[in-house]
């Protein structure tokens, strides 16, 4: 019995001095992986839901085109096209695709994928206009961005 008593005298504290280090490691992980948003999005982005989504492997090949109703009142109610930080008209898209293609190496240029982030209230008319210009610019890979989920009838 005396043996047991001796053991119980040992300190039962869990050393917590390493805790900050662990937390810091997590913190650094998130700090490094976080990509701060480069663009301010000027249009409403209520991305529709879909079920059959596929992932794109190479992020460097993606260029984004945002379509939706402008957030600011001054730009009207009709959906507009935004690339980088500005609103553009469909006819400017060819130049946009060209600058995006120039950023890639020559071998990858025809693999460029245009990700269309379209608000779910936008009409097909503007989307078609964009697609027509993209065909002219020879950027034929399109991704309709969507969120995984089942569409619920309202």
């Amino acid at each position: 019995m005396s043996k047991f008593k001796k053991k119980s005298a040992a300190s039962q504290d869990i050393p917590t001095s390493a805790l900050p280090d662990i937390i810091f490691m997590l913190l650094f992980f998130f700090m490094v992986t976080t990509v701060m948003r480069e663009q301010t999005i000027l249009v409403e982005q209520d991305i529709p839901k879909a079920t059959q989504l596929r992932k794109l492997e190479r992020k460097s090949l993606i260029s984004y085109i945002y379509i939706g109703k402008p957030k600011e009142k001054g730009f009207g109610e009709e959906p507009r096209i935004q690339v980088n930080d500005v609103f553009i008209s469909p006819s400017d898209l060819i130049r946009f695709v060209q600058t995006e293609k120039d950023k890639l190496s020559e071998a990858e240029r025809n693999q460029i994928t245009m990700a269309l982030k379209v608000d779910d209230e936008a009409k097909m008319g503007i989307v078609t206009d964009v697609q027509l210009e993209l065909r002219k610019a020879n950027a034929l890979k399109i991704m309709y961005n969507a969120i995984q989920g089942v569409v619920v009838e309202e």
């Binding site: 596929r54 794109l56 992020k59 990700a115 993209l134 399109i142 991704m143 309709y144 961005n145 969120i147």
Partner: peptide, 13 residues
Amino acid sequence: ASDKGILIQLPPK
């Protein structure tokens, strides 16, 4: 970044 979506290929011009 939610780079998921539905992929399509446009016809050539």
